[in-house]
C-alpha cells in the first residue's frame, strides 16, 4: 500500500489512509476521477471520500509520479490502457484516445485512474493442486470475470508448481508476464515469494514469449495471463505439441461462454485443457466455484466434492 500512497498527492494519500484505517477494510480498488469524489471498493462495498476531489493538476501529478517523470516510457502502457507499478498493483486509465491508422495510439487527457491493489494471498491454490496433477501437471484454464482473482490464482499456482508442495514435485516454470502482474518483477527480477524454479519474461508479448520459452528455457510448465487473441491460441497449440504444460487464464463467466468465443472455441473443441477452474466475482478473490474436465463435466464444486 505504501507504494500506492507514494504516488498520490500528500493530502489525498493521508485522507485515503485515514479512511481505510478508521473503517478497517481491505481495499481492492481505489478509483480516482477528475472532479469526482474518491471511490474505494472493497469487493463487497463501495466507499466514498466526498470532501476531496481530484483536480486536473493532481491527475497530471499522479501520472508523472507513476512514470517517474518520464511519460515517454509509458508509450506501450498508454496504448494498452493500464500501467503496472512496483508490487504488482495495476493502474487502469481512461481518457480521450488518440487514434492512428484505426488503432489506438495513446491515451491523452487522462480523466480516470483505477488503482487495483494486488493483495497477495499465499496458498489459495493449494487445495486445487492435487486435482491438477496426474503424473505431470495438466493443462489448466482459469476462467473468471474481472476482479474474480484470476491473476491472484495464477500467481499462486506459479508459486507452487515452481517450488513444489507435499508429494507434488517442483517443476521448471516459465512465466510470460506481459503485464508484470504475476511475478511483479522489478527490473526483470521476480519477487522473493515467486517460487524456486521460476523463470520470467517480463513485459513480453504472450505469444512470442511462449515460443521463446519453448526454444530457450526448456520449461515444464508455462504460465500466462489473459489469453484471447488468435495469435495466443496458435502459440498455445505450439507449446502443447512441444510437450509443455500450459496454465493460463481467460476472461469469461462460464465454460459455455468461453466455448462461444471464436478464438478460443478451437482450443476447447480440441480438448486442450484437461482442467478448467471457474471463478466468480461474488466469492472471495481466487476462490474456485467449480472444477471441470476437458469436456466441461464437473469434477468438483465449491462446498461439496473432492477438495
Amino acid at each position: 500500500m505504501e507504494v500506492i500512497y507514494s504516488l498520490l498527492p500528500d493530502q489525498m494519500a493521508k485522507d485515503i489512509q485515514n479512511y481505510i484505517h478508521s473503517h478497517s477494510f481491505t481495499p481492492q480498488e481505489i478509483r480516482l476521477r477528475i472532479n469526482r469524489p474518491i471511490e474505494i471498493n472493497s469487493g463487497s462495498d463501495i466507499h466514498w471520500i466526498t470532501h476531496q476531489r481530484l483536480s486536473q493538476q493532481e491527475a497530471k501529478y499522479i501520472l508523472n509520479r507513476i512514470s517517474e517523470h518520464s511519460i515517454y516510457r509509458l508509450e506501450e502502457e498508454l496504448r494498452q490502457g493500464y500501467i503496472t507499478i512496483k508490487g504488482g498493483h495495476r493502474i487502469g486509465i481512461s481518457g480521450s484516445v488518440i487514434v492512428e491508422n484505426g488503432s489506438v495510439k495513446a491515451i491523452k487527457h487522462i480523466s480516470s485512474f483505477n488503482i487495483r491493489i494486488s493483495n497477495e494471498v499465499v496458498g489459495i491454490s493449494k487445495q486445487y493442486l492435487p486435482l491438477l496433477y496426474d503424473n505431470r501437471y495438466m493443462n489448466t484454464l482459469v476462467i473468471g470475470p474481472p476482479q474474480s482473482g484470476k491473476t491472484t490464482l495464477l500467481k499462486d499456482l506459479a508459486r507452487f508448481t515452481s517450488s513444489g508442495w507435499k508429494e507434488l514435485p517442483a517443476q521448471k516454470t516459465g512465466v510470460v508476464d506481459e503485464r508484470s502482474e504475476i511475478c511483479a518483477s522489478l527490473n526483470g527480477i521476480p519477487q522473493e515469494s515467486s517460487g524456486l524454479r521460476i523463470d520470467v519474461l517480463d513485459h513480453c508479448p504472450k505469444s512470442e514469449g511462449m515460443m521463446m520459452f519453448v526454444r530457450s528455457m526448456s520449461p515444464e510448465v508455462i504460465i500466462v495471463d489473459e489469453i484471447g487473441s488468435e495469435k495466443d491460441v496458435q502459440a498455445i497449440l505450439e507449446v502443447i505439441n512441444a510437450g509443455v504444460t500450459i496454465m493460463c487464464s481467460v476472461h469469461g463467466r462460464s465454460y459455455e461462454e468461453i466455448r462461444r468465443r471464436p478464438a478460443l472455441s478451437s482450443l476447447i473443441d480440441q480438448k486442450v485443457f484437461s482442467r478448467m477452474l471457474v471463478l466468480s466475482n461474488t466469492c472471495q478473490a481466487g476462490e474456485v466455484i467449480e472444477v471441470l474436465d476437458c469436456d466441461g463435466n464437473k469434477i468438483a464444486q465449491r462446498g461439496r466434492g473432492v477438495y
Partner: peptide
C-alpha cells in the same frame, strides 16, 4: 518539456 511527451515528441 522534459518527460512530458511521448518518444517522438520528446
Amino acid at each position: 518539456t522534459l518527460g512530458q511527451h511521448d518518444i517522438i515528441q520528446q
